[in-house]
Design a protein around this nucleic acid. Structure first.
Length: 685
DNA sequence: GAGCACTGC
């Protein structure tokens, strides 16, 4: 093991160290609550926000928009709504709505607030998320996910049911929050009595303030937006930087864990790495260490934490370590935003993150590893010291920290905007280029979105939604290309099969893929029962049909190594789609397994995503001459190698992978999309 | 042989 590479904080005061109280934001679920033993009212009285009650109410009355900056633990997500309700500030026939980026936050917050208000959930206080509406028209405080509010705006653009809109977790800058902010800014101009409260954990509030300030004069007395800062609630945290840059942060993180271990002080460790592979590697290394050092007084207990783990596997990270063990959680960015693990005293931060970045040239996402932002570094550090003083080890130099960008570019600037553009058009935001974006996306991305929508015939050459497709496509909870497949399949008479496929495409993975031992092969053999030469999408249909035929049985799923939870989700999505089709008068028809028709309707939505087998033996994309590789999960890796395929998704990681494939013939492309294909392109191949 | 930050309608 190499020597300790961090500067001793006592070595040179003021260098290599920082004392600070972190204003850390965490998702509202699983928040550590040091006052758990107190009764509800005493707990509420102890929250930092309670001291600011009069200020909040006064500012809400005086200003149309209030930007409230404060860390979690300040109580802003649960208390602000109740303050407004209790004060009677909200008009009697209207309610208060709070948006959350994740379902789990909306549900847990509503549950908590209902308890505090001493009512049953779903009456005075409720929530609404996809597939789960627990509210009534009389509900006064409603926690909802962001997408629900956007959906409500389609039928009610001025949101007249609400007197106060609270947007939570704004610092995350999700695609949805940015869209909502732009839309609500317009609503504020038309409804002067509406109040907007923005809850954010970061300190960069000046940009938000000027964005929402509708004051046209030079007199600040007429400002319509203001900022209020709330102190957080945490212990001091010491920060250590590495002396020299490390060539391998995974190894370095292990060294640091062992140094903490040698230091002897107790406390769990949270290590931030970028991906599953790194995490597995780190966990294995610590396992080896345990085998070689069986006599440690306190044993290290390595635990992986990432999004693709099952719920049971994730729970391990939340359980306290058994006596004689110290938890070492190796995590991706999930632990920065989505989940909070209690008991963390030490944080080790590798300084990198994997980000999805949309590339308008390929019309696809790249997954790239980039240095984190300062805001992220602060956020990660804030995971230590929530329950007692903590220590943070940054696996980068102080100089590197100072050179980090302030904040991660918002999703809006690095996402495919096709679906968002379609939704905006449905709420009469026709000129998307002139939408008041807080962070304007690259013009290229907007142009790509329009071209895409035009190719899918959702908009006409003037950019207006088409009557035939556009209006309905915007209302379906599907990606635009999938909505088109559905509408086409209804014309062709196979919509029943297509909705099964589209529902299955929304799952993470329908197959259970064991990680160890003989079951790996067993699972693969069972999966062969569903795999067909036509490709992945038809394989998905086979799985769903089997599931349906066997009465959605758990035993059946178990036998064939199919993920029962995921399949149940597909069933739910499918029946939701059937409901929507009924209201939109889209016929539900089965082609009785006629694969030719099914593939034809798929092609009518994915025609842009064609690839052919080049004579070099690699697949090439049509038009881009980019080498493409079948994703390792594709069944076409071992079923056959067709001349032409369509893909649902293209993802650039170490190679350019195409996912969810269907075998096709080039003539089919001309048949389904004559409006798109310049014939010579295909004939020249 | 090789791959998957995270959400959501």
């Amino acid at each position: 093991m190499s020597s300790f590479r961090f500067k001793n904080p006592d070595e040179k005061p003021g260098y290599g160290e920082e004392d600070s109280n972190f204003e850390s934001a965490i998702s509202s679920s699983f928040v550590y609550n040091p006052n758990m033993s107190l009764d509800l009212q005493s707990q509420r009285n102890k929250l930092p926000i309670t001291k600011h009650r009069n200020e909040v109410l006064y500012l809400c009355e005086k200003f149309q928009t209030l930007i409230l900056v404060g860390s979690t633990g300040s109580g802003k997500s649960t208390q602000v709504s109740q303050m407004l309700l209790d004060s009677g500030l909200c008009q009697c026939d209207k309610s208060i709505v709070i948006t959350e980026p994740r379902k789990i936050s909306a549900i847990t917050l509503a549950t908590r607030v209902a308890q505090e208000q001493k009512t049953n959930l779903g009456q005075l206080v409720g929530y609404s998320v996809r597939f789960d509406n627990c509210s009534q028209p009389s509900t006064k405080i409603k926690y909802i996910t962001e997408g629900i509010l956007l959906n409500e705006m389609m039928s009610n653009p001025l949101l007249v049911n609400y007197s106060v809109i609270i947007l939570d977790e704004i610092h995350e800058r999700s695609l949805m929050t940015d869209i909502l902010m732009g839309l609500i800014k317009k609503v504020l101009k038309k409804r002067p009595t509406l109040r907007l409260i923005i809850l954010s954990a970061t300190l960069d509030s000046s940009q938000l303030k000027s964005y929402f300030n509708l004051n046209q004069s030079n007199d600040p007395a007429n400002d319509t937006a203001t900022v209020l800062g709330i102190e957080g609630r945490s212990y001091p945290t010491k920060i250590y930087y590495i002396k020299d840059p490390t060539p391998n942060y995974v190894d370095e993180s292990i060294n640091t864990v062992l140094k903490i271990q040698q230091g002897g002080t107790l406390g769990d460790i949270l290590v931030f790495l970028t991906g599953k592979e790194e995490i597995m590697q780190a966990v294995n290394t610590l396992d080896d260490y345990n085998v070689k050092n069986p006599n440690e007084k306190i044993k290290l207990l390595p635990i992986p934490m990432h999004g693709t783990l099952t719920n049971d596997e994730q729970l391990k990270a939340f359980r306290p370590a058994p006596r004689g063990y110290r938890k070492v959680v190796f995590s991706t960015n999930v632990a920065e935003t989505s989940v909070t693990i209690s008991g963390i005293v030490y944080v080790i931060d590798c300084g990198f993150v994997k980000l999805k970045w949309f590339n308008s040239k390929f019309g696809a996402d790249s997954l790239i590893t980039v240095p984190i932002s300062k805001a992220s570094a602060v956020q990660r550090a804030g995971r230590a010291g929530r329950e007692r003083p903590g220590k943070v080890y940054r696996l980068y130099t102080k100089e590197a920290y100072q050179n980090l960008i302030n904040a991660t570019p918002p999703e809006m600037m690095r996402s495919d905007l096709t679906d968002v553009t379609l939704q905006l058009k449905a709420i009469y935001i026709n000129n998307v280029l002139r939408f008041p974006f807080l962070s304007p996306p690259p013009a290229k991305n907007l142009l790509y979105a329009m071209e895409m929508l035009k190719a899918l015939e959702a908009i006409d050459k003037f950019g207006n939604l088409t009557d035939s497709f556009g209006t309905i496509m915007a209302e379906l909870p599907l990606p635009a290309k999938h909505s088109r497949i559905l509408l086409k399949s209804a014309e062709m008479g196979c919509s029943s099969e297509i909705i099964s496929i589209l529902a299955m495409l929304q799952l993470q993975d329908a197959f259970v893929r064991p990680k160890y031992g003989a079951t790996i092969q067993k699972a693969k053999i069972q999966h062969r029962n569903f795999e067909v030469a036509e490709g992945d999408l038809l394989t998905l249909l086979n799985i769903y049909n089997g599931f349906e035929k066997n009465q959605y049985s758990q035993q059946w799923c178990h036998r064939f190594f199919i993920n029962h939870n995921e399949l149940c989700k597909a069933r739910k999505i499918r029946s939701h789609l059937i409901d929507l089709m009924r209201t939109s008068k889209i016929p539900l028809k089965s082609c009785k397994g006629n694969t030719r028709i099914i593939i034809k309707s798929i092609a009518s939505g994915l025609f842009k995503n064609a690839a052919y087998l080049h004579y070099t033996g690699v697949y090439r994309s049509v038009g881009l001459d980019e080498d493409l590789y079948f994703h390792p999960k594709s069944v076409l890796n071992y079923v056959n190698q067709p001349q032409w395929v369509l893909y649902d998704e293209l993802l650039e990681t170490t190679k350019t992978y195409i996912k969810n494939l269907v075998e096709i013939t080039p003539s089919l492309l001309l048949e389904v999309a004559p409006h798109y294909f310049a014939t010579p392109t295909l004939q020249n191949r």
